[in-house]
Design a binder for these strands. Sequence first.
DNA 1: TTCGCGCGATGCGTTTTTTGCATCGGGAAG
DNA 2: CTTCCCGATGCAAAAAACGCATCGCGCGAA
Lengths: 304, 304
Amino acid sequence: MRYMTSLRFIDVVAREGSIRKAADKLAITSTALNRRILAIEDELGQPLFERLPSGVRLNTAGELFIQHVRSQFAELARVQSQISDLTGIRRGHVRIASGADALRLFLPQAVSQYRSLHPAVTFALQRCYGESAEARLQSLDADIALIFAPIRAAHVHVAATVRQTMHCVMPDDHPLSQHEMIRIRDLAGHKLCLPTSESGIRQLLDTGLLRRATEIDVVLESDSFEFMQNYLRFENALGFQIPIALTELAEMGLVAIPLDPADVAPGTLHLCHLKGRVLPVAAAKFLDEIITSLRDNYGEAVDQ
Amino acid sequence: MRYMTSLRFIDVVAREGSIRKAADKLAITSTALNRRILAIEDELGQPLFERLPSGVRLNTAGELFIQHVRSQFAELARVQSQISDLTGIRRGHVRIASGADALRLFLPQAVSQYRSLHPAVTFALQRCYGESAEARLQSLDADIALIFAPIRAAHVHVAATVRQTMHCVMPDDHPLSQHEMIRIRDLAGHKLCLPTSESGIRQLLDTGLLRRATEIDVVLESDSFEFMQNYLRFENALGFQIPIALTELAEMGLVAIPLDPADVAPGTLHLCHLKGRVLPVAAAKFLDEIITSLRDNYGEAVDQ
DNA sequence: TTCGCGCGATGCGTTTTTTGCATCGGGAAG
DNA sequence: CTTCCCGATGCAAAAAACGCATCGCGCGAA
């Protein structure tokens, strides 16, 4: 929308921390951008940015204002999607922040299924860890977040939760592959692949491993589940995963065996959005879909 | 704010129901205004107005959009007031929709007291009856409403309520002036002045009078309490009022005597704002003030 | 300390956008 | 059928936004 140009510009400046960089990104000259910002500050009656030698930074008023600007964008998107819905064709754009877990299989399936019903709805999927997912909700860069970690921020509303028991993934000829359940002490002497420490899986594992004080042999750390899963086959090592991220293992010659919940506490997957925000039609309906889907596939999804 | 010009224009067109009338009001030509509207409709991808021979009218999409536009105005005002508050001086503008009752004494006192603390805050007081007060909250033309009538709309949030017993006002030499409490049957044979039928007072009275089927003698109807109060002295008639509207009667040679609650049910005064809306700082603080004031002066104010 | 670099601010001529005037076509009322 | 008022549109003038060149300023490297 044309009338929001200045607001969009301000948003970019705030993100870039520099008028010249932002102008570059926006494909205009820094003078034009600078003047737009001065004009808005003038209209508001007070500055929004501190001028530093290295660029600009939002001051307190700016922080308040930028939040308002972003909520206007989100509101406009919502109204547009609502208006489009009047024609019978659902349009819109849904932005999802998710950990790598759900991006493997669950979200691809869910998005694909939704898009087969509403082809005019587009999606953006942002991979990120818990805290940054919460931040994206707040800054209105994401509509929905799927977080496998405790919720920290008060501004996040949890629409549904699913309990996920930790699983151990290994080649089907691995010595532990015949176990029905794996204890921490079983891991001793085996080679382990762990996700990086930002991951919710890793945090749960760390807690469990620490408590049992087992000697463990970590041969690899990665933030790519796909890499790790492929790697296991060559090194005959052990990986960890939660059910929602378990893809077709059999075809790859892998098996997944649950860890004893007494050793590693089951984690909780949270489906969230920003508290107090009215989601666009498309996002709201998609949220409903995945709540249903979570409940059907992983049981015990809880509306809150 | 300059960037909202088009939105402001659309709002006026929607209210006026005609591009030419709106253009006149906005002191621009109808062509310029027309093109702005066409431009926005073009950007949105669909029309907001139906073109009638006599002007324009919002269609469904337009209704959705105009609500969004108005909420943006309100939001901007809120953010501006919040930013001003950073400087330590509270600024802002509070718009109150109220029945005539509270406009007599209570609100003048409350506003005056608040302005003595925060002289940079300005006020607008709109006199209106219950339903239209609710409509003003919805269309964001008012921040706060003080309604002496049942709340009808679901979008209204009641921040506090006060029970108000109906009183009968009369010259101090009136035959009924020595009663401690007045029954409906006492009214027979006396001349009555009633508020117009939109008034909450009148509605309560009608219910009571109807139930008792008393023969009554209505000599005057008016929507001006001030007129009626002055009139009583000359005609030696009876008027009706609720405590919040009772001004210095003694000086005018008048007395107020409660009606028996068994005959005329006490009404409820509601202090409201739009549900889900974040009020500007000034309005929110003023709301707090009058909740306190209501509780102190009329007891039993109830936060909800 | 000096020099160079990158930053935001500003004066001025140019380009783009917006506005106003005149006018068209069409429905409603007299 | 005529008249009036409505919104839409072509075109020229006015206004706003833009880009270029340049200034002043603080920081970091030499």
